[in-house]
C-alpha cells in the first residue's frame, strides 16, 4: 500500500473492559493499536470471543472505550457526546450479521430506506423516496421492494437492503460485522460481489469482521488476526497463505477445509479452547495452546513488532527469526 495514503482511522492502545460481579474484569479488547487507510478493506479475523465484534462496536462508538483513543479523520471520537455522535454517524456506518434482526416487522422497506434522509433532514419524503429507488437499484433490487414488508424478503435480499441503507449518506467508513455468516454460500458470494462493486465505485473504506479466512483473503487488502483481545498478526491478505508466521494464524489456516484441498491431509487439531478472558495471566495470551511456547512466553506479553514491510507479529519465538 502506498505510504502517502491518508489514515482515516487510527486506534491508539484501545482497551475495553466489562466489569462483572465480584470485582472481576472481562478484558474484551486489550491495548489494540491499528491504522486504517483511506479506501482500504481491512479484515479482522479470529475465533468467537476474541474481541473482534467489540472492536467494531468501539470504532462505531456503540460502545465507549475504557482506555485509549480512537481518531477518525484526525479527530478523537472516543469521548464524543450525543449530538456530536449523531453527526459522526453519517460518516460511520455498521452492518450486522443477521439481517432478520435489523428490521422492524411492521415497517415497509421504503420507510426503512427513507429513514436516514428524514432523520438527518436532508430532504423531504418525496425526494427521499426517489432516492430510495436509486439506492435499491445500486444493490440490484427493483423498486417494487419499496412496498414490501421484511418478512416477504429472503435473508440475502434483506442484507442488500441493509447495505443500501448504510450506503445512503455516503459514509467514509463502513464496518461489516460478519455480514455473510448467516447466509448461504451462494448468497454470500452475491453479497461479496456487491460489496466489491460498491468499493470499486465509491472507494469506501471497509472494516470487515469475519471468521472465514478464505473469504477474507478473497475480499480484503489487509488482515488483522486477533486472539483473546490482542492483535497477534497483521499482514497483507494475499500473503496470508504463505507468510503467516504466528502459530495461532497457522492453526487457523490449518483448520480451514478447502473444497479442492488435499483430502488425505492430517488435521492438526488445536487442542483445548480459548482461555477465559477474565483471569488473564501476564504472559502471551496464546501460551496455553501454543506448540512453540517457552518460558518467556509464560512471563512476558509479546509486543506487536514489525518483521517486514506490511507485516506485524506478536510472538517471542519469532522476534529473532529473519523472514526473507
Amino acid at each position: 500500500m502506498d505510504k502517502q495514503v491518508k489514515t482515516i482511522l487510527k486506534l491508539e492502545s484501545v482497551s475495553k473492559q466489562y466489569r462483572l460481579e465480584k470485582n472481576q474484569n472481562l478484558i474484551a479488547v486489550n491495548e489494540v493499536s491499528l491504522n486504517l487507510y483511506q479506501g482500504e478493506r481491512l479484515a479482522i479475523v479470529g475465533e468467537s470471543g476474541c474481541g473482534k465484534s467489540t472492536l467494531g462496536k468501539l470504532v462505531t462508538c456503540i460502545e465507549k472505550v475504557s482506555d485509549g483513543k480512537i481518531y477518525f479523520k484526525g479527530k478523537d471520537i472516543s469521548k464524543l457526546q450525543r449530538g456530536q455522535l449523531r453527526e459522526l454517524r453519517q460518516e460511520l456506518q455498521i452492518i450486522f450479521q443477521d439481517p432478520f434482526n435489523v428490521f422492524s416487522p411492521r415497517m415497509k422497506i421504503g420507510a426503512f430506506l427513507n429513514e436516514p434522509f428524514i432523520n438527518y433532514k436532508k430532504m423531504n419524503k418525496n425526494t427521499a423516496r426517489e432516492e430510495s429507488k436509486r439506492m435499491l437499484e445500486a444493490v440490484e433490487l427493483d423498486q417494487s421492494y419499496l412496498d414490501k414488508f421484511p418478512h416477504q424478503l429472503s435473508g440475502g435480499e434483506l442484507q442488500r437492503v441493509v447495505i443500501a441503507r448504510a450506503m445512503a449518506l455516503n459514509p467514509s467508513l463502513i464496518v461489516c460485522d460478519e455480514v455473510t455468516s448467516a447466509l448461504d454460500v451462494s448468497i454470500q458470494k452475491q453479497i461479496i460481489e456487491l460489496l466489491t462493486k460498491i468499493h470499486q465505485e465509491t472507494g469506501m473504506t471497509n472494516l470487515f469482521i469475519s471468521h472465514d479466512l478464505a473469504l477474507v483473503q478473497s475480499f480484503c487488502d489487509r488482515v488483522v488476526v486477533m486472539y483473546l483481545g490482542n492483535i497477534v498478526e497483521v499482514m497483507k491478505s494475499d500473503e496470508l497463505g504463505h507468510t503467516a508466521h504466528h502459530p495461532y494464524t497457522q492453526e487457523l489456516l490449518n483448520s480451514v477445509f478447502s473444497v479442492h484441498g488435499d483430502r488425505k491431509k492430517e488435521i492438526n487439531v488445536l487442542f483445548g479452547e480459548p482461555p477465559s478472558p477474565m483471569n488473564r495471566s501476564g504472559g502471551c495470551p496464546f501460551v496455553k495452546r501454543c506448540v512453540m511456547a517457552c518460558e518467556k512466553c509464560l512471563l512476558k506479553m509479546p509486543e506487536l513488532k514489525k518483521c517486514k514491510d506490511n507485516h506485524l507479529i506478536a510472538c517471542h519465538r519469532l522476534e529473532k527469526c529473519e523472514i526473507k
Binding site: 458470494k189 478473497s218 478447502s258 473444497v259
Partner: peptide
C-alpha cells in the same frame, strides 16, 4: 458447479 464456485478458496502457498 454453481454451489462449488461460490465457496471462497484459501490460497495457501508453502506454509512455514
Amino acid at each position: 458447479r454453481q454451489l462449488l464456485s461460490a465457496v471462497p478458496e484459501l490460497k495457501v502457498g508453502c506454509v512455514g
